[in-house]
């Protein structure tokens, strides 16, 4: 019998619902615009009775709660607008991983085939930090296709890079995920009721669909959510190495000669983290706001997963 729902359980659902609303309506909720006509070059201020001009990025204040970026765009508006792109990217990557890992893992767990190969590949991927597989080729591709030119980059090359970014990150996660699923599938496959079904003529597909999937549904759900958080961690890490996707523009900063600043046009969070990490000493509010929001979303997801596990126990209950 599952335990009664607690206040924490309902609170976790409320937070997730809020995050979903922000993801869907963030573009409308933002307090300031983030298009070309909203750029601010100078703001006149009065200091000790004298007129002074301030150049962006502006620190947090009454007008911009989280401060602004080099274009004068409100950080809060950028974050609200970019949230859906970040969540959408992470969700797409997780779904891609599951599309391949789930059938492979289930099949391997039921038949026992390719379990050695899965174990080996899982070890290869886990033995070495993921950025060693991902960063060099993506970095080389990024500069090789001249995507550092921002808005002047060829859109077809940008699409190629985006597709390869998705493919590589998804591919890297398939083997450890499939291995985990295979281990659990093997456990359920050894149960007596599955053995009975096999003896009565149930094939591999029947076993996977009728016995393993229902038995593993809660575990798969938790695995999906955990994998989603892991993907967020990974794309955040790649962002610190300045590998991120989404539209960007290159701003020529007139304080220095030949100094260009690549900034996201959509407010995608990993791009904001990449941009903010470069200016942590001069304009810390950029990385603080984007990093805090990123960490807060992950915390909210972890809290939700913990509450779901407490309520449902992580395995299917026998009725």
């Amino acid at each position: 019998m599952k335990p009664r729902a607690t206040k924490s359980y309902y609170a976790s659902w409320a937070i997730i619902a809020l995050l979903l609303l922000v993801a869907v309506f963030g573009g409308w909720l933002k307090p300031h615009g983030i298009s070309q006509q909203d750029k601010i070059n100078l703001i006149p201020t009065t200091v000790d009775g004298k007129l002074k001009y301030e150049k962006p990025p502006f620190p947090p204040g009454t007008k911009f709660i989280f401060g602004s970026d080099h274009r004068g765009f409100d950080m809060l508006s950028l974050l609200l607008n970019g949230f859906k792109y970040t969540m959408g990217t992470a969700l797409a990557l997780t779904l891609l991983r599951f599309c391949f890992a789930l059938p492979w893992g289930l099949w391997s767990g039921v038949t026992g085939r390719t379990s050695g190969a899965l174990r080996t590949l899982q070890w290869v991927i886990s033995a070495v930090p993921a950025f060693l597989f991902l960063f060099p080729p993506l970095y080389g591709m990024y500069f090789g296709l001249r995507l550092n030119f921002g808005a002047k980059a060829n859109p077809q090359h940008l699409l190629t890079f985006t597709v390869l970014y998705f493919a590589m990150i998804a591919f890297l996660g398939i083997f450890p995920l499939a291995y985990q699923i295979a281990q659990r599938a093997k456990y359920y496959n050894e149960k007596l009721y599955v053995e009975a079904s096999r003896l009565m003529g149930g094939g591999v597909l029947h076993t996977m669909r009728r016995h393993l999937m229902p038995g593993m549904r809660l575990e798969l759900m938790f695995l999906f959510l955990t994998e989603f958080v892991q993907v967020l961690f990974l794309i955040g890490q790649l962002a610190v190495f300045h590998i991120c996707i989404g539209g960007s523009e290159t701003l020529e900063w007139d304080l220095f000669v030949d100094y260009f600043i690549p900034i996201t046009t959509t407010g995608e969070w990993t791009a904001l983290i990449a941009y903010g990490s470069t200016y942590i000493r001069l304009y810390p509010w950029i990385i603080i706001s984007s990093g805090t929001c990123f960490a807060a979303v992950i915390l909210a997801l972890q809290f939700w997963i913990a509450q779901l596990k407490k309520r449902y126990g992580g395995t299917a209950t026998v009725r």
Binding site: L132, P136, P137, Y139, G140, M141, G144, L145
Partner: peptide, 14 residues
């Protein structure tokens, strides 16, 4: 494998 992957940048010529 990592050695081969880390040279992928040279596949793209500009």
């Amino acid at each position: 494998g990592i050695f081969l992957l880390s040279n992928i940048g040279t596949l793209f010529l500009n």
